[in-house]
Nucleic acid binder design. Structure first.
Lengths: 228, 228
DNA sequence: GAAACACTGTTTGTATGCAAGTATACAGTC
DNA sequence: GACTGTATACTTGCATACAAACAGTGTTTC
C-alpha cells in the first residue's frame, strides 16, 4: 500500500470525497499504486484518516472513469493499461491535438502564453531534477493549457484523460522515459509555444504533428504492429 | 478439460449504484428532469426504493461527469447546457467523427454493419412514431457503434458524451427537432452506412462531414455567431 | 418600520453498523 | 496424495444514524 497517501485533516470545505479522489488518483499517476494492486476501502480510509463513505464515493468515480476496476465481488484494483489501449489513446490525441493547437493559435489570450511558458519551465526543471513524474505532470498541464486556450473543454478533457492513462502505462512498464526523450519533448513544446505566440496556426499544427511523430519514433516498438 | 469454458464474469446482481446512475441519467436524457431543477437525495432514494447511499454514489459520478452540479453546501441541480457549450461539443464531434468513420470503414467487422443497420431501423421507427427521445437515443447509438467499429474507445466515449449533452440542450430549449430534420439525419446516416459497407473510408468521411454541415444548417442560428 | 438576531427545518456530508458474498485454509474422504 | 466439502475471515454493498451548514422565518430591538 502506498505510503504516500497522507492523512487529511481539513474541515469540511473541500469535501472528503474530493480529497480522497485527488489523493488516490495522484497516487496512481505517481506510480505509487501499481496496476493490479488490490485497493481496500478500509485501508485507504485509515490512511486518509476518514471513513469509508467518502472513499467509496471517490472509488466509484474512479471506477466509472476506468482507472480502477471491480473484480466480481472481491475487491477493486488499479486498471492495467494495455499496449493496445496505449496506442489507441495516443492515436486519439494525435487526431485531436492539431485541431486544438490550431484553434489555440487563433483564440488564445496573451496571459495564457505566460502560463504555458511557466509550465514549460517547470517541465525543464523537472528534467534537470530527474523527476519523471513531475515532467509528465507538467507535460499534461502544457497540453491542457493549450486545450483551454483553444476554448474546447470537451476535447481538452479527452486529451488530458488520455495522457493520464498513457503516462500510467509508461510508468507501469518502466518504459523508456529517458532524459533525452524528455529534453526533446520540451524542445518541441517550446517550438509549439513560439508558433502560438506568433499566432501561426499552421506552423503550430505542423509542429504538433511533428511532436507526435517524434514521440512515436522514440517509443518505437510500441507501435511496430500498429501500422496505420 | 473442455477448453471452451469461459470464465464467468457475472458481476453480482446489478449494484444499486448502477441502477440509480442509469435511472437518473436516463431521466435527464429523456428531459424528465429539467435543468436547474433541484435534486434531493432522499426523494430519489424513495422513488427508487433504495437508501441514500447508492444514490449518493451515483450522483457523485454524475457530478464528476458534469451532468449535475452542486451548489456549495446546499443541493444538487441538473446542469444547464449553454449555447456556447453546445457549439463547443458540436465542433468537437465534427473534428473527431470523420476520423472515426474513416477507421471504421477500414476495420469494422461485418456483423457490426448489421448492428448499425438495426439501429438505423430503430431510428426510423422512432421518427415514424414521433418519438424524439427515441430518435435521439438511436442516433447516439449509431455514432457509438461507429466508434466501436473504429476501435477507439476513448474517442467514442467523447462523441457519445458530447451527444448526450447536445441532446440535453436541444430538449431543454425545445429546439427544433422536427420530423424533417430527423428524416434527413436518418437518410444521411444510411448513406454513411452504405459507404462503410463498401469499405470506402473517404466517401464515409465526406458524408460524415456533410452530415455535420447539414446539421449546422438545420440548427441555423445556433451557430450564427460562431464563424469558424 | 427596518434591521439584526436567533430559531427551526431541511438537506447535505460523514461515520458506523450489518448482511451477503467470495477466497482461503483446513479437514475429511477416496 | 489428490480431491472435495466446510468453516472462517475478510471485504464489499447497502442502510441507518448523526452532525454541520444553509435558507427561510419570526421575533426582538432600536
Amino acid at each position: 500500500m502506498a505510503t504516500s497517501l497522507q492523512p487529511v485533516n481539513l474541515s469540511r470545505s473541500p469535501r472528503y470525497r474530493e480529497v480522497a479522489y485527488a489523493a488516490i488518483k495522484d497516487a496512481i499517476l505517481r506510480g505509487q499504486l501499481e496496476p493490479n494492486q488490490p485497493l481496500v476501502e478500509e485501508q485507504l480510509a485509515t490512511l486518509l484518516n476518514i471513513s469509508r463513505t467518502p472513499v467509496r464515493e471517490a472509488l466509484a468515480i474512479l471506477e466509472h472513469e476506468g482507472l480502477i476496476g471491480a473484480r466480481n465481488g472481491r475487491g477493486l484494483y488499479i486498471c492495467t493499461v494495455t499496449r493496445e489501449q496505449f496506442v489507441e489513446m495516443f492515436v486519439a490525441n494525435e487526431a485531436v491535438e492539431p485541431f486544438l493547437v490550431r484553434r489555440a493559435a487563433q483564440h488564445a489570450r496573451d496571459e495564457q502564453f505566460a502560463e504555458l511558458a511557466a509550465t514549460l519551465e517547470q517541465a525543464e526543471a523537472s528534467v534537470a531534477a530527474h523527476d519523471v513524474v513531475g515532467f509528465l505532470r507538467a507535460s499534461r498541464t502544457f497540453h491542457r493549457l493549450i486545450g483551454v486556450a483553444a476554448g474546447n473543454a470537451a476535447l481538452t478533457d479527452l486529451v488530458v484523460r488520455n495522457e493520464e492513462r498513457t503516462d500510467m502505462y509508461l510508468l507501469s512498464t518502466g518504459q523508456a522515459v529517458q532524459p533525452t526523450m524528455m529534453e526533446a519533448s520540451n524542445r518541441e513544446h517550446a517550438a509549439i509555444l513560439r508558433a502560438l505566440q506568433r499566432r501561426d496556426p499552421e506552423a503550430a499544427a505542423r509542429l504538433t504533428i511533428y511532436h507526435a511523430q517524434s514521440l512515436r519514433v522514440r517509443l518505437g516498438e510500441l507501435f511496430s504492429e500498429h501500422l496505420d
